[in-house]
C-alpha cells in the first residue's frame, strides 16, 4: 500500500533580516509527512522548529524552497488564499491563549466550522462529538476563563479537529501544562490520531511529548539533524 504524503517540504530556507545581521532560521530542510503520522519536531530553543511549523502551516513563507500540502504548493498563494487554505486544511493548537475569550467552549469549537459555513445540524453534532472526545462534554458552556489551562488546550484540540482538517499543527501544546494535564492531552491526541486517522505534527522540547511520538525529527541550527521512527 502506498502511503499518502500530506506535507512535502523541499529544501526550505528561511532567513530573517529584521535586524542588520540576517538570521538563517532554516537552512535547506527537506521532509515528507504522511497521512496519520504522529510526529514531533524537536530541538533546542532557536533551532528553527517553530519556524518550520509556521511555514508548513502557511503562517510564514519560505525564503527559498517549497512546501506542498495535499499536492498544492502553498508558497505561491496570496495572503487571503493562505487564510482560506489554513481554514480548510489545517488545525492549529498553539502554546497558550488559543481560544477566543468571549466565546464559550462550544462556540470556540464551532468557530472554524462557522467560517467554513458548515450547516448548523452538522456543526452542532460535530462540536458535541469533539468536546465529548476531549472529555469536556459537561463544560460546553464555560468560557475559557472558567477552564483550567489543560482544559483550554483540550478545547483547542477539539476546535482544531472539528472541521476535519488534513492535519494538526501543534506548537509546544504542553508548554504551559502540568504533568497530569499533559498526559491527559497527549492521551486524547493519540486516541484521535488512531481513531480519526488524523495527522499530528508537534514542535516541542517536552520529553513527555517526545516519548509519545511515533516519529521524531530533530532540528538543530535550521537543519534536520535526525529523523527517527519508533
Amino acid at each position: 500500500m502506498t502511503e499518502e504524503i500530506v506535507i512535502k517540504v523541499s529544501d526550505v530556507h528561511k532567513t530573517y533580516d529584521e535586524t542588520k545581521v540576517p538570521v538563517k532560521a532554516l537552512r535547506g530542510v527537506t521532509l515528507d509527512i504522511k497521512k496519520g503520522e504522529f510526529t514531533a519536531i524537536v530541538g533546542p530553543s532557536g533551532s528553527g522548529k517553530t519556524t518550520l511549523l509556521n511555514i508548513i502551516g502557511g503562517l510564514d513563507r519560505p525564503t527559498t524552497g517549497s512546501v506542498v500540502v495535499n499536492g498544492m504548493d502553498i508558497s505561491t498563494l496570496s495572503d487571503n488564499q493562505l487564510i482560506d487554505f489554513r481554514k480548510t486544511n489545517i488545525g492549529f493548537v498553539f502554546q497558550s491563549y488559543n481560544l477566543i475569550p468571549v466565546l464559550t467552549a462550544r462556540e470556540n469549537v464551532e468557530f472554524v466550522m462557522l467560517l467554513q459555513k458548515v450547516d448548523k445540524a452538522k456543526r452542532d453534532a460535530r462540536t458535541k462529538e469533539m468536546l465529548q472526545a476531549v472529555g469536556l462534554g459537561d463544560r460546553m458552556h464555560n468560557k475559557p476563563t472558567e477552564l483550567s489551562g489543560g482544559q483550554q488546550q483540550r478545547v483547542a484540540v477539539a476546535r482544531a479537529l472539528a472541521p476535519k482538517p488534513s492535519f494538526i499543527l501543534a506548537d509546544e501544546p504542553t508548554a504551559n501544562l502540568d504533568s497530569s494535564s499533559t498526559a491527559n492531552l497527549l492521551d486524547i491526541m493519540a486516541q484521535l490520531n488512531q481513531e480519526e486517522g488524523m495527522t499530528f505534527v508537534f514542535s516541542t522540547h517536552d520529553q513527555r511529548v517526545i516519548d509519545r511520538a511515533r516519529r521524531v525529527v530533530t532540528i538543530e541550527d535550521g537543519k534536520v539533524l535526525k529523523d527517527e521512527w519508533r
Binding site: G57, D84, K87, Y97
Partner: peptide, 16 residues
C-alpha cells in the same frame, strides 16, 4: 494583537 494573530491563523479573513 495576539488574539488577532490567532484568528487570522485559524482562518478568519482580514475583511471579517
Amino acid at each position: 494583537e495576539y488574539e488577532f494573530g490567532i484568528l487570522k491563523a485559524i482562518g478568519m479573513r482580514t475583511s471579517q
